[in-house]
């Protein structure tokens, strides 16, 4: 049997996938029926990336939050 242990994606690949997801999200709103929602989605996307970034450094995150 082959080894079923997962190999987690690297940091760069992880960020790349997140950006890809955000690209698709913006495309959904940009090309869809609700382009007027794009600014809000953009704002939430930035917040999402910040939160994802903080999750990646969660041990030091409590020191970073007060700076934001």
């Amino acid at each position: 049997m082959s080894d079923p242990t997962p190999t987690p994606p690297g940091r760069v690949e992880d960020v790349g996938m997140r950006l890809g997801t955000l690209g698709q999200l913006l495309r959904l709103f940009g090309r869809g029926k609700r382009p007027w929602l794009l600014p809000l989605v953009l704002l939430l996307s930035v917040l999402g990336l910040v939160l994802a970034g903080l999750q990646a450094v969660q041990y030091v995150a409590p020191f970073i939050y007060p700076l934001l």
């Binding site: 994606p9 992880d14 996938m17 997140r18 890809g20 997801t21 999200l25 999402g48 939160l51 994802a52």
Partner: peptide, 10 residues
């Protein structure tokens, strides 16, 4: 969503 469900691919 912003911390979890949006990132299903990851």
């Amino acid at each position: 969503w912003l911390t979890d469900k949006l990132w299903v691919r990851n």
